[in-house]
Design a protein around this nucleic acid. Structure first.
Length: 587
DNA sequence: TGTACGATGAATGTGCCA
DNA sequence: TGGCACATTCATCGTACA
């Protein structure tokens, strides 16, 4: 298999742990840190006067050992912690570079490869260490970590945790809060508050720390500014074009275009492409546009590309000249797309196209009610019956599959309408309900491909993609069908079902590039992104549509805009896009 | 426990007409 | 231009059942 799957986010951050990890960095001094992370008395192993002798044998100076014992008594663990901390204090700044590198996790794993535990364990000094905890700390210190980092990791993960996992824990702790990802569900204001409280990272090189701090400050400042912008209720409403043809669609008259304005800071690589429902609550698109460099959204109805409507807004910095359609072009009417239904279609149902494909379907009871109503009316139903039937058919996207018989679309019909290959979502342990859910949330491939087609001449040798909220891989399928080689795809998708579908498609289509999975966008850190970028040489395209659950008209209970628990992830999209772009500017 | 089913409106935009 | 009727909408939640 050509793909590699990095199971990221393997560290579970519960709230208390987050705060504790934060404390590593937020303590005002090394002494504070030592105090915070000193082992508990229950874990100590006091051994009387042998303690001093043993620490002297370990190579600590007499003065340091005496000082440590004075301060910590015969508590062996605490004495060792203090000694290690003193030693760290004494190290010159130049020595910090080993653990300061933001790519330290990678370095550490390399160290594990070339400097196996066995080799370290045979070291004479190592053998003299009395407890397992000491040995583990020593190993980690040998690898370049600070003692208090090692102790904190052991305390959090337990002593039985393999070295590699401890390394991962420390790396995550170092970098997670840097991008505020570890603050999880906290509100933005709380995140800011936490960041201000934290005082920035401790374990990074000054240069990198300064860079990330500056970027984070800029991001926070910009966001605060954007959030505090006075609400101009006349200007905040983004008007939807009618017809909804965006900057132009095939076989339709070109719209009268205003001057498309892309600010300098948003121009060029990495290109980005953001998608969401067009009919969001008032003000939402204005807000999203403000965050995404004030670029005007392009609203397009997919009914100009296939036989089903799908009104979506797209904010992107792609060129809009010389776009091309995917070939063969998909059927544009119901009868062309679903020819087997034509014989049953009553003349009084004038629908030529379907409505938006949603995540749920009409019930069997409803189709039964419709059948009975039509049968009762004879060949020519009464106007009232016709009206009721048409209304329900439009509402639930029902099609005629027999005499007087309507039914919801089958998953494979939805796949076809959405531009996915047959059986894309079928099998592999995925239920029908799940198929409907993931297809209802997907891109319409032909529409997206039309916009992305300009990338083909820009990246003829292939493209590196950061795919956020990947879903079932609409973007990947679109790029593949455009003939743009997928060199590297970093996919961020929280649904295991969707990840399985994308992986399965990737394998079946014999992709030559690498596919890397991340789960939760909130847990994607600057460090992880930098690791990917250093491997891939940056990203060419950042693409994705953030969750619309709290924006969509179908949501009757929690349609609360960008404040909603799901749709607020738009701000994570913004965070990632801003982070990647600023990192790439400084490469 | 997982899956399928069915009941649950409101927000927003559009078109027509006075 | 305002008012009205009408059309559309990447959904959520509780319940039944295997």
């Amino acid at each position: 298999m050509d793909s590699s799957s990095i199971e990221s986010n393997s560290i579970e951050w519960n709230t208390e742990d987050e705060l504790d990890v934060d404390n590593i960095s937020s303590s005002s001094s090394h002494q504070d840190q030592i105090a915070d992370f000193a082992p508990s008395s229950s874990s100590c192993n006091c051994r009387g006067s042998n303690t001093i002798h043993q620490f002297l044998q370990m190579g600590f100076s007499k003065e340091m050992v005496i000082k440590a014992v004075k301060e910590n008594g015969q508590n062996e663990g605490a004495v060792l912690d203090a000694l290690l901390a003193y030693k760290t204090f004494e190290e010159s700044p130049e020595d910090e570079h080993v653990l300061d590198d933001p790519c330290h996790a990678e370095l550490a794993s390399n160290v594990l490869d070339v400097y196996p535990d066995k080799e370290i364990c045979e070291n004479e000094e190592f053998k003299n260490l009395s407890t397992e905890k000491d040995r583990t700390v020593s190993l980690l210190v040998e690898m370049g970590y600070q003692a208090e980092e090692a102790l904190a990791a052991i305390d959090r993960c337990s002593l039985d945790t393999p070295i590699a996992e401890l390394v991962e824990f420390i790396s995550a702790a170092q970098f997670a809060y840097h991008t505020d990802a570890q603050l999880g569900e906290l509100s933005y204001d709380n995140k800011i508050h936490q960041h201000q409280k934290l005082n920035g990272p401790v374990y990074m090189s000054k240069k990198k720390r300064k860079f990330y701090d500056n970027e984070m400050r800029k991001l926070q400042k910009q966001r605060k500014y954007l959030e505090k912008q006075p609400m101009d209720h006349d200007n905040e409403i983004v008007h939807l074009p009618n017809p909804m043809v965006g900057f132009g669609v095939p076989n339709q008259p070109s719209p009268v275009l205003f001057q498309r304005r892309i600010p300098d800071e948003a121009e060029g690589r990495p290109y980005f492409y953001f998608e969401n429902v067009a009919l969001a609550p008032k003000g939402v698109w204005h807000t999203m546009s403000r965050f995404l460099y004030y670029i005007d959204p392009e609203f397009v109805d997919s009914k100009f590309f296939c036989a089903a409507a799908r009104k979506r807004g797209y904010i992107h910095n792609l060129p809009i000249e010389n776009r091309s359609q995917l070939l063969p072009t998909p059927p544009s009417t119901i009868h062309e797309a679903l020819p087997h239904t034509k014989q049953y279609w009553p003349s009084w149902d004038k629908r030529m196209q379907l409505n938006c494909i949603l995540t749920c379907i009409g019930s069997a009871k409803l189709t039964d009610r419709i059948k009975k109503a039509v049968e009762k009316s004879g060949d020519e139903p009464l106007p009232g019956v016709k009206k009721y039937v048409i209304q329900q058919c439009k509402k639930w996207n029902l099609i005629w599959v027999g005499k007087n018989k309507v039914a919801p679309l089958e998953p494979h019909e939805m796949e076809m309408l959405m531009g996915f290959p047959p059986n894309h979502t079928r099998g592999g342990g995925i239920s029908r309900t799940e198929q409907y859910t993931v297809l209802g949330n997907a891109f319409q491939v032909d529409t997206v491909a039309y916009h992305l087609s300009v990338l083909k001449r820009m990246f003829p040798d292939g493209i590196s993609v950061l795919s956020l909220f990947s879903g079932i891989g609409g973007a990947e399928v679109a790029l593949h069908r455009l003939g743009i080689p997928l060199r590297n795809v970093v996919s961020v998708e929280i649904s295991e079902t969707c990840r399985k579908i994308l992986q399965s498609w990737w394998d079946e289509t014999n992709q030559q590039g690498k596919l890397i999975h991340f789960h939760d966008i909130r847990m994607v850190t600057a460090h992880e992104l930098e690791k990917c970028m250093s491997t891939f040489g940056g990203f060419d395209l950042i693409i994705g549509g953030s969750p619309c659950n709290n924006l969509a008209g179908g949501n009757r209970s929690t349609r609360n805009g960008l404040e909603g628990s799901k749709s607020c992830l738009f701000f994570e999209y913004y965070r990632i896009i801003e982070l990647v772009r600023s990192m790439m500017r400084h490469r």
